[in-house]
Design a protein around this nucleic acid. Sequence first.
DNA 1: CTCATAGTTAGACCGAGTCAAGTGTGGGGG
DNA 2: CCCCCACACTTGACTCGGTCTAACTATGAG
Lengths: 144, 144
Amino acid sequence: MSDLTALLRERGLRSTPHRRAVLYALAERPHVTANEVASAVARTASGPGAVTELSRQGLYNVLEDLRRVGLVRSIEPAGSPALFELQAGDNHHHAICRSCGAVQDVPCSIGAAPCLDAPSVGGFVPDEAEIVFWGRCAACATSL
Amino acid sequence: MSDLTALLRERGLRSTPHRRAVLYALAERPHVTANEVASAVARTASGPGAVTELSRQGLYNVLEDLRRVGLVRSIEPAGSPALFELQAGDNHHHAICRSCGAVQDVPCSIGAAPCLDAPSVGGFVPDEAEIVFWGRCAACATSL
DNA sequence: CTCATAGTTAGACCGAGTCAAGTGTGGGGG
DNA sequence: CCCCCACACTTGACTCGGTCTAACTATGAG
């Protein structure tokens, strides 16, 4: 758990219980909404790592801080609140189930990095490509 | 303008002034927010095609109807309200400028259809791939 | 010890979109 | 010709996710 502390310090952030709790929560379950992070953190409140409730503002501050230093990434699929995950640095993409909303990681496999190839169009300078595959997850596809 | 009527009938929708006005507005300017559509429609109110103001709910109804029959497509970039465009049927993607928010169409050029290749992962059955390139548009890139 | 600053809180606020329920309205049947 | 019903549309309250503001508290460098 103290590696979380190291991680935070490394990025120039103070290591606070809330920040550690958020990182810990995201490590356990990827692709969670801000609310889910909040309740995960709240649940931590009863464990040994005891954490006081985190206010809404506090939560967003923490998430934004972590995002800014590159520890956390967020995606905002159409029709869903923002989802947060630990930044793995592997530039993977996401597959989202149209019927149950489950989010799955998809390794960035198309060739090397299809990711930044495309738009030489009109002088546009891309720095990131975000790909979302919409469809049905295994469970929902079979139960059709 | 009556081709809009035909278009609507073809898809099983009554041709109403509001629906025509929305289609017309989208034909003129792609990637507009619901609000922008609303004001475009309102502006039409003073022209020859006179249209009475369209309520918020009415607007969303029209947009949803058009989307359902495949005349309109919408994208919801992170941190922005939904943007609407006419469905061109060409499955193009979008490049969004991080600094000015401008949205540009990007032809779906990577190979044939990178679009549905990827996730054989875990039984996921994709039906659409949505790609967003984030970066700087020509104007913002040069003015750095 | 002390003070600036980072972190936190409570609560008002906002924009985008949805819900529910009512009002027109226009195009068939009786 | 009139009634009636489906569909278009309006109004206003409401929800949800998130932001802003203004305080308060804890921390840690000097």
